[in-house]
């Protein structure tokens, strides 16, 4: 899985940091999403999917790859 965020459209609602804190944070000053890991490990992917679905501004995009070959 490959995660991308579009910070220009982020509205700082924090759903991502609440749902998958190992992968998403918000920067201290502006509250914009910070991506901590673009390649979440297997055990975090379910939470990342929920976070992407819950993002109110549809800022998080996921590319699902063949997980058997992904590092």
């Amino acid at each position: 899985m490959d995660v991308r965020v579009d910070r220009d459209r982020c509205i700082g609602a924090g759903m991502c940091a609440l749902t998958a804190p190992e992968i998403f944070d918000q920067d201290e000053d502006e509250g914009l999403v910070v991506l901590l890991n673009t390649r979440p490990p297997q055990e975090r992917r379910a939470a990342v999917r929920i976070a992407a679905g819950a993002c109110p501004a549809a800022v998080i995009t996921l590319t699902e790859q063949d997980t058997s070959t992904a590092p």
Partner: peptide, 13 residues
């Protein structure tokens, strides 16, 4: 407005 304020309402803060 949202950008001025959202840093003050983050999950961590």
């Amino acid at each position: 407005y949202r950008r001025l304020l959202m840093g003050k309402f983050t999950v961590r803060r």
